[in-house]
Design a protein around this nucleic acid. Structure first.
Lengths: 207, 207
DNA sequence: GTCTATAGAATGATAGAC
DNA sequence: GTCTATCATTCTATAGAC
């Protein structure tokens, strides 16, 4: 039994491992859960403190503002999902694209809490903070585009519009964070496999 | 020159044609724009009134609460996009699916303001209001699924997982509301055409 | 570092004149 | 139907004790 409203799974999420001290990490995890469930603006600093098992004032010991909590979540989330794509190498172009889509879509399901904050709360960041995560988003887009471009260059993929195809693939994966519900029909791995199949069909040349 | 912050395009949007009297319609349009831009919870009733060119109290002449404004927008938006799908008939299965995807994705671009409220503010509805739009969402899902199922039954489409394919197609179209920006690289019609192509590739049997 | 208490501002909604 | 004025509440953030 814990003194907070956070379950064990949330506290073991490796995304937050490097955040110290413990109270700052508990606060960040509490904020991520609250932001994901009710949205940034509907979440009060009291909600966050209460979920972390601390007083309302404790938030400001570790973070300057509510927005700084959001920024930390957004930054870590973007870095984690970019690292996923950056870690993919080896195999042929189709294998790499399959792995990329499977991992990226699967991440948006398994870590839908973080992913929702990452994808749907960009507008609540300060302009400076938004610019910082926008750069990471550009890198994510470039990575995914290169996986498709590789196959086109090798002649194993056929897409009429490279930027359009990249947009659609990223969009498909990102939207998983909106509809995914734990305990639903599909596991994150199954979603990754399904989406990788669908994307490979999209880029496959006409028979 | 108008006394409100709403531009001519917003006021001519046919989605709101049946809303009377004029002040109630202006308020609804103002609310849709504010909710889409900043989110429901970040929007104040003063924002809405100001955008409609009226006093803060004027909101409550035509609507019981801020949530009732949201519900009206959500209901009208869902009804409009469902009507789009319900109006599709004739042609072969591939033509109908192409038309459906093109229209549905295109709607999420052209009416991205309404679409954003429809897709991303469901959580701010009261349970009763949410249940009412959830029924419309089920009908939208069924319609899209039937367009795919028709082609499978005729043997012109090949999908391993009908529910999964339907989910992906709807997801792809819906996410347009998140990333679309007027004045961007693609027009709503071009997005519709691009997405219809990609979806037909997804359901096309192996050569 | 964490707490209790609260300042200072903003919010949703209402009262009552016109 | 619309306005001005305002109530009651809630919010982010800070002060100061321990």
């Amino acid at each position: 039994m814990t003194t907070t409203g956070l379950d064990e799974f949330a506290l073991l999420d490796e995304t937050w491992r490097a955040v110290t001290p413990d109270a700052a990490r508990r606060m960040l995890i509490a904020a991520a859960h609250a932001f994901a469930e009710k949205g940034y603006h509907a979440t009060t600093t009291r909600d966050i403190a209460s979920l972390a098992g601390m007083s309302p004032a404790a938030v400001y010991i570790h973070y300057r503002s509510k927005e700084e909590l959001l920024f930390n979540i957004s930054l870590l989330g973007h870095e984690t999902s970019l690292a996923l794509l950056n870690g993919i190498e080896g195999g042929d172009a189709a294998q790499r694209l399959r792995t990329a889509v499977s991992a990226f879509a699967g991440w948006h399901a398994e870590f839908h809490t973080t992913a929702r904050v990452v994808q749907y709360e960009l507008g609540a960041l300060t302009p400076e903070h938004h610019a910082e995560v926008a750069e990471l988003r550009r890198q994510i887009e470039q990575r995914m585009r290169s996986f498709i471009a590789d196959g086109v260059a090798e002649g194993v993929f056929d897409v009429g519009d490279l930027k359009g195809a990249t947009l659609a693939v990223l969009s498909l994966c990102i939207d998983v964070a909106r509809w995914y519900q734990p305990g639903g029909r599909r596991t994150p791995d199954e979603i990754g496999a399904l989406y990788a199949d669908l994307v490979l069909r999209m880029v496959r040349p006409a028979g």
